[in-house]
Design a protein around this nucleic acid. Structure first.
Lengths: 168, 168
DNA sequence: AACAATACGTCAGCTTTGTTGACATTCCAA
DNA sequence: TTGGAATGTCAACAAAGCTGACGTATTGTT
């Protein structure tokens, strides 16, 4: 099942050798570092962290979303998210309004200041993504997305597809 | 520069709209969670964390590597890495031997027990990667890798390519 | 031989971001 | 109407990153 044996099994399966797969793993590791590097640099100057970025991103993405919904998307505990939301609300980047139908829920929106931060972070991250896309070309990008989608957990793919459908 | 305007600019640039790029960003986020989910589950049962996984992975990858070299690859401080290495060495998963040529250096190797853990973690992560590769197909995989490489920081691409050359 | 630089380890203390546990409020269904 | 489920908040703790300071052994330079 290891290196040597598989190299003889024809070209169509070559890309599935352990070595090839492991290289994909490392590519994922190094690329994710680059992926977060630019926003991280910006956040550091503002006493916020990656968790704040994620919250701001998905609130921008789905305005009026509830805490619970955000929880499911981000995959963290509500206590962990709450700490982040608390500072964002205190700093006036996010507004939390009691639900009309269900008063237990809080609906989250970005304020103008919050939207400005979101844009700054997005732009930095998008620039890198865009330049990677340009260098790799459209077909590579299609493959990139296909593999990423196949790599997600079922439930997350659902979130991703839901989002995709809403805005495509 | 936003959604509406770009959709008219011809098919060859369509994939560069803000929306398309943002979707790539979210794909990256969700996929990375899937990417680490399986090893994380295993690690949790053994009182180790993702940091231990990374150390074990790269020691397996480059047997005999020095602490300093590992530091550069992982992009963390020596204090942070040291905490992890200390427990791995104490638990008998990693051996640290004084360098022959330069006695200041410590060369790191996995013990049999360490190699066994590495295999267990790798297998879990590779299984997911392999199945994603299968579902997406060879061309998608090539594109996947191209985009990831283009997304890395320069210095990290160097590490990645160096590794790639050694084993291809 | 003396001195600076390098490689590694460690201590102390702080930050971010994850966790569990306890609790208040609100809604809904028996 | 009352008890359970759901939503959200507060408190305390853990993992893993960080900076800064320092000690020791070794190497390289002058």
């Amino acid at each position: 099942m290891s290196q040597g044996g598989q190299s003889q099994s024809g070209q169509s399966l070559l890309f599935l050798t352990d070595e090839q797969v492991r290289k994909g793993i490392e590519a994922m590791f190094f690329a994710y570092r680059g992926f977060t590097a630019d926003p991280d640099r910006i956040l550091q100057t503002k006493a916020y962290g990656r968790a704040h970025h994620r919250a701001v991103h998905f609130i921008h993405r789905s305005p009026g979303t509830t805490v619970n919904n955000l929880l499911n998307i981000l995959g963290v505990t509500k206590q962990s998210l709450n700490r982040v939301l608390r500072t964002l609300i205190a700093d006036g980047l996010v507004s939390s309004t009691v639900g009309r139908a269900d008063k237990r829920e809080r609906h989250l929106h970005l304020t103008d200041v919050g939207a400005a931060l979101e844009r700054e972070l997005s732009n930095a991250q998008r620039d890198r993504m865009r330049s990677a896309y340009r260098r790799a070309g459209p077909e590579a990008v299609a493959g990139f997305r296909e593999v990423l989608e196949a790599m997600m957990d079922e439930d997350m793919r659902h979130h991703y597809v839901a989002i995709k459908d809403r805005t495509d």
